[in-house]
């Protein structure tokens, strides 16, 4: 049980790390948001699952947290992307990797 929990914690951490790598490597705000949101959401859920295996009696509260993260994380990133688009930040398109400042 504890081992399984550790594995989930590790997987969650790994996804978070990959998400951060994505933040560094992606060329513009929109692509970075993609990397950040997905990795943070699944990473958080994996970590919560890991905690759940370590403390099985907390599962209801962990479920509420997971539901909250699932609902609000994408809303947050959509809002940032929308604000960016409205303030005129052009997304890079196609194979063009240069960021226009």
């Amino acid at each position: 049980m504890n081992l399984l929990g550790d594995i989930f914690l590790l997987v969650g951490g790994a996804f978070m790390a990959l998400g951060s790598l994505g933040l560094m490597r992606m060329p513009d705000l929109y692509n970075r948001l993609q990397a950040g949101t997905k990795a943070a959401t699944l990473g958080t859920i994996a970590v919560l699952l890991g905690i759940g295996f370590h403390h099985p009696d907390w599962w209801t509260k962990l479920l509420v947290i997971a539901g909250f993260v699932l609902f609000t994380n994408p809303v947050g990133s959509s809002t940032i992307a929308r604000a960016a688009l409205k303030s005129g930040i052009e997304p890079v398109r196609g194979s063009n990797r240069k960021v226009e400042s």
Partner: peptide
């Protein structure tokens, strides 16, 4: 937003 490669703007 949370599926492969797409983000609602």
């Amino acid at each position: 937003t949370l599926t492969p490669g797409t983000l609602s703007v």
